[in-house]
Design a protein around this nucleic acid. Sequence first.
DNA 1: TGGGAGTGCTTTTTT
DNA 2: AGCACTCCCA
Length: 709
Amino acid sequence: MSDLLANLNSPQLQAVTLPPVHALILAGAGSGKTRVLTTRIAWLISTSQVGPHGVLAVTFTNKASKEMTARLSALLPINTRGMWIGTFHGLCNRLLRAHYREVGLPQTFQILDSGDQLSMIKRLLKNLNIDDEKFPPRELCHFINANKEQGIRAAQAEAYDNYTQKRVELYAEYETQCNREGVVDFAELLLRCYELLQRNEPLRQHYQERFRYILVDEFQDTNRLQYSWLKLLAGGGAKVFAVGDDDQSIYGFRGAEVGNMRDFERDYAGANVIRLEQNYRSHGNILAAANALIKNNRERLGKNLWTDAGAGEPIRAFEAYSDIDEARFVVDEIRELVREGVSPTQIAILYRSNAQSRVLEHELFAKSVPYKVYGGLRFFERQEIKHALAYLRLLGNPDDDTAFLRVVNFPTRGIGARSLENLQASAHQMNSSLYNAAASLTGKSGQAVGAFIRLIESLRQETENLPLPEMVEHIVEKTGLAQHYRLEKEGQERLENLDELINAAATFVDAEGAIGEGGALVSFLTHASLEAGEHQAGEGDEAVQLMSVHAAKGLEFDVVFVSGLEQGLFPHENSVNQGRDGIEEERRLMYVAVTRARQRLYLSCAQTRMLHGQTRYCVPSSFLDEIPLELLLKLNKKAAPLVTSFAGGYSAEPAVGGLRIGQTVEHGKFGIGVIVSTEGRGADARVQVNFSGNGMKWLALEYAKLTPV
DNA sequence: TGGGAGTGCTTTTTT
DNA sequence: AGCACTCCCA
């Protein structure tokens, strides 16, 4: 036990050994957050304050939950298997499977991933003859998810205008369709679970009494529904231990509410608030930069990171002529670092948007520097894998229209758009699934569809008693999927992925051993939806790591390059347009980027950048101005700025006449350009624009017609 | 049915 | 620029 608590600093120790009380742990970057969380659980169990049975630990990602489980088994001589440690979605899935009857779901209910959800919505719009220009599927999808994440059903959604009224109706249609097919989307897992606990008192009491200690990781990322879910489960006297960092909340755009941290103190009376402010990761200058940045945000819970590691190296800043020039600089520095003995795996290049990786990759490739890009297409989202899974889904649940449509004519078997239209019409009429309606189709197309149904039926019989991996193999072969990719020019990789799917099934069966409700197939399909396959890529051997800043959260490297620090890119234009909240989230993102570095941090920007096929003239990011000059070492050899360096406080509100510095505008005669500076107000306002092709021009706003691009 | 041409979009991302 | 999606013709 003394082992367990050894080497904890005083606030860490205090947090770990808190008596049974609610607690909010404000854990700064690199302050040992995960360690505190796992040690707290281990301490509670090893001092017999609670059994493994009475602990509920929630994370956001599978990676985090796996890490927690692994650390826990290292700390405690217990089997962590039966413990309730998992992601919000994973745990809700577990509850719903256990009580599928009470929530009105088939035992074998399937989980729609975002892609499935979107295609379902598109299909719905088509069937209802709705103009998808007026109701863009993506927007509708977001509308539905946002409502669910607030705990709002279609029946409760308020509509202030006709447009929203229609969207609410479509939301209702979507709900109906999901129920008819027996499928749930990600948000539905949570909402349905929440409603179950709310409605069913004996069940609620059962779980409330069972979980005595509830621990939440990355609390700043919880949305409203998740917060309510936790509150409901804690309603029976359980103690909640929430760990988070409001300064690292970077998922507001998908519904995370930092406000939950504030509400926590209100809703959990007498909650202990403990700050973990000692950083064990970064050198002093890096932390100083991070602190200087983040103090520009308002509405913080307040926290100042410190380290006793010493100031370390200055932060290196570089302003390149172009994105290509920037890439060249980054890669040259990396080569030098590697020559000096730094491991490439300890070097990361971060960027705001994934599209930026292209130039960097190009340069890395040209100079033969091994690299690994994170954040591409994930395994279970590849088309060939989704095809194979769709066949499997159809075996498990013929009513799954999404799966049906995905493979009914893939590989092609003469079932064209026409036949499918007929089929969908009759399914709609019969109020049944496509699979069911297929029997009623007559004529030539009926035959083709009939053949498909017979294929599925015979596959079901043939695979009934096969172990999962063989079942997958059988499907891949007998449906013609494998043959199709064998004949395709570029099909080799896809074939390999299908083989990998068979392996994945074998691994899954080995690892899982006992299979939960509904058998191996359903468990495997659930696994595929809930864990789309970690970012791809194994531990890159000796490769430089490339990823978006979002993807870097939670990671750390000896050397970090933050590239593309330009106004409009980082902070991103779209966020800047969202006002103060937007810019503050961008700043937190910058804070996350900076705090990834242990020893050396590079910040770079470019004066011109190819974006959307056009050269854009850029102004250095306002975030660069927020870092004290004395921390910076400017590496530019020659100073010949195309654009005068950004001076004067940037403000989120428009500068003059609705135009801002850094904004791209179009002029009738001079074409596209970037606003470099402004002067005067009202009728006297003038802006200086750097036109691509026509150079720098001063224009009076009263006369020149500039339209934002 | 399937491929080629034309069109439009493009921040971040987990589950 | 690059990709996904649609449309139209062989």
